[in-house]
Design a protein around this nucleic acid. Structure first.
Lengths: 122, 122
DNA sequence: GCTAGTACCCACTTTTCGGTAAGCTACCCG
DNA sequence: CGGGTAGCTTACCGAAAAGTGGGTACTAGC
């Protein structure tokens, strides 16, 4: 079902835009969490190791990165590939589903990057 | 500048994905705030009054709706049109810039709505 | 005069988010 | 044997987000 059909002057929309406490809201919260978007975008280009992610996603703490990755992994958006070597080597990449998400996220991010200054100026 | 060119195996990406504390991060926070997305989507179909927004965006409190609308209005994404009549009548709609955003947000929301159940099942 | 409806605002409290710092494992190097 | 490294985990704490309950202004209707 398309969100864009949930509303409509012809329907009267007595129901809301996405019912409260539905699965879409939960996923939306995961994806639009403070670091979720940035991690997805970072991984959209290439697989990255833990330490690389920490550097690339500027400002994220270890705790938040671990938490974000765990959520995204359990959502099936990010793949965690741990090599049992010493020192540990863990590689993160997008799953097919994660790449679908990234495809829809990147245009948004590009638009934001283009318009951010104008938006804050007003 | 495209976000998708910020990274790249050929560049070495010693700098991060969007520098910390830049305008893009701020706008990203505004747009991906808990209620920001839902308000934009709700207004993407049609202009809505305050009370209608409260009902359509299920679960939002008056305080949060007011705060969200104020942020979006000062970002130039939402237009507030107050009619000086009794009882008060205030209409909210998207600006041209807000519609640009909504165009990039709706495909994302549609994808989330389509995949939410599968994502939470895993 | 009392109540209801619309669109808010403000103060207070609670809850959640996120940062800091420390510790842990298992090895390798010197 | 001490220090270093990579990838975490945990406990603690402050800040920020968000909910609650009240109040305001104005008029129409009973």
């Amino acid at each position: 079902m398309k969100v864009s059909t949930l509303l409509g002057s012809s329907h009267g929309f007595t129901d809301g835009i996405l019912p409260e406490a539905c699965s879409s809201r939960t996923v939306l919260d995961h994806v639009t969490s403070k670091w979720g978007v940035l991690v997805i975008v970072a991984l959209s280009e290439q697989m990255l190791r833990w330490g690389e992610l920490r550097r690339v996603v500027e400002g994220v703490s270890e705790k938040m990165l671990a938490q974000t990755l765990k959520t995204l992994e359990s959502d099936g958006l990010v793949l965690r590939d741990a090599h049992p070597v010493i020192p540990p080597r863990v590689e993160y990449s997008l799953t097919a589903r994660g790449r679908e998400l990234a495809d829809r996220l990147l245009p948004l991010m590009d638009w934001i990057a283009d318009n951010a200054d104008a938006i804050l100026a007003s």
